[in-house]
Amino acid sequence: MLVTWKYRPRDTFVQRLDPRARLIFLACMILAVFQFWDIRFLLPFFVISLTLYFLARIEWHDVRRAWIFILLFVTFIVGLNALLSGRGGPLEVLQDVSSRVIFQARILTVPLVGWTWTVRITVVKAVFAATQLVRILTMAILAIPIPYTFDPSRYGVAFRQLGLPDKAAYTMDLAFRFVPTLGRDFGITLDAQRARGYEVDRLKGGIISRLRRLAPLVVPVTMLAIVGGEDVVDAMDLRAFGTRPRTWTVRLEYDTKDRLFIAFGVLLVVVSVALNILGYGDFWVPSALLAGG
């Protein structure tokens, strides 16, 4: 059986919004943020995301784990990658050789062939890493509250009324609930294997050996997901799912605040695209930092 995220009904501005308005606004924000590499242009979006996050009034202990995961992911994968390699952004960061070097060290020299790997952090890369963190966090802060503030019984109908066909809309409904179900099965499996003396924090050896040691967790969880999927298909077949166009009893209706919220999102996209076309928002490094060398 699929379980749901830890949703609670709350009388907040965010939860009073039509789920479709929130999804459309999320899409608008992502599109708008993608227009800029200039941290000065990104900061207003960051503030909007943060404001909406606090308006959602989610209890900290509900989202603590999600935050830890996101912060670790953003810092170590996105931040470090940006800082060390400069990849994933504008070309001028990748090709930067002229700006001031903050830190440089030879990390590794391969014997015999003599190849070396040198870490060279420049002002440009440091600013780029900060910009990249603000971009990703802007989107993450907007996305984190969704599972906790989005009524699970509205998943399917929201996507249907956004124009997806019946099957695709219901698939989205099931997919949304698949993640916490996987989490539950993972928790039970971890307990069952720990009871057999398995300690996940004691993984030793090389990558292959470590991956093999993860099999006691990965194999049962995968098999449960497959078998669970078959159960869902049988249960849906037995109640005539997909045999004809279906009725969606729950109907979502936009009200004024939803329309205004969507309009605000669309406005952000229009303005952002226009600024981009006019040449604003390219990668920016404070001249004081560049001149400092």
Partner: peptide
Amino acid sequence: VGYVFQSPSHMLFA
């Protein structure tokens, strides 16, 4: 203490 969980599906993997 040996503990056998209710569902074997949660532990069999090899």
